[in-house]
Amino acid sequence: MSREKFVERVLFLLALSSLSSLLLITVFIFLEGMPLIIETGLGNFLASSHWAPTKGHFGILAMIISSVLVTLGAMVLGVPLGLACALVLAEFSPPRLKMVLKPTLELLAGIPSVVYGFLGVLWLVPLIRDYLGGPGLSLLAAALILGIMILPTVISISIDALDAVPGPYRDGSIALGATQWQTVRRVVLPAASSGIITAVILAMGRAIGETMAVIMVAGNALKIPTSILDPVRTLTSNIALELGYASGRHREALFATGIVLFVIIMLLNLAATLLTRRK
């Protein structure tokens, strides 16, 4: 076997091993969680909000709703901010400023989520409690913290998308007499839209999957929230919160929660992949 072939084989094996870990995870989660879903009935599991696993009630509706609301809240805050930031850095700032600012913003991604949660508990939660009411630990607190946490994802992928728009597009538009803002809005943004949508979807995946910071600031109550000041429990926090004490059916129910989360995140990723491929 030639050296070339050998290296190729080894790399192929390594690639397979990373894929197989994904496969193993999938099989494992489904094996552990499916029996409970089948026993409870998918309808009961998804459409009931009565969660008392040690007493035989396994309904995760409240958590699904909370996960969706927290994620939406984070998007409402994070996407416009992140996109504006990306536009400034990619289109309106001198290259040297961008060289400094972009890596700095990406540092945000390196801050461990427990630190975000800690800051949230220490000053965001008391602020909300004192000025807006409620216990402070709330949907709003979780959405605000997550909104900041997804910024690096939105910014760096959006910048990549904006940078990928060929320069002649801009030159052409300017040459036709458009202002810089008109160029960005009518030419650059539409050309970069699929990349920006990918950024948004990946950020959504990040937000829905975040656990530690959310446990710390969301209050984890099991009720379906009726106000943004209500405490909520997301799917991820449910798993992490009860993991340590769960055994038997309770443990299966947490795996089943994991299945739902897994499916949601896979769908988001699939959507991101399809959207980027279309163009």
Binding site: I29, A109, V114, G209, G258, I265
Partner: peptide
């Protein structure tokens, strides 16, 4: 705690974390 990975990887983390935990 403590992971600072590329954002794209973050999407898979909850699943991984879940597995490791369980």
């Amino acid at each position: 705690q403590a992971w600072g990975l590329h954002p794209r990887l973050m999407v898979f983390l909850p699943v991984l974390a879940l597995l490791c935990g369980l």
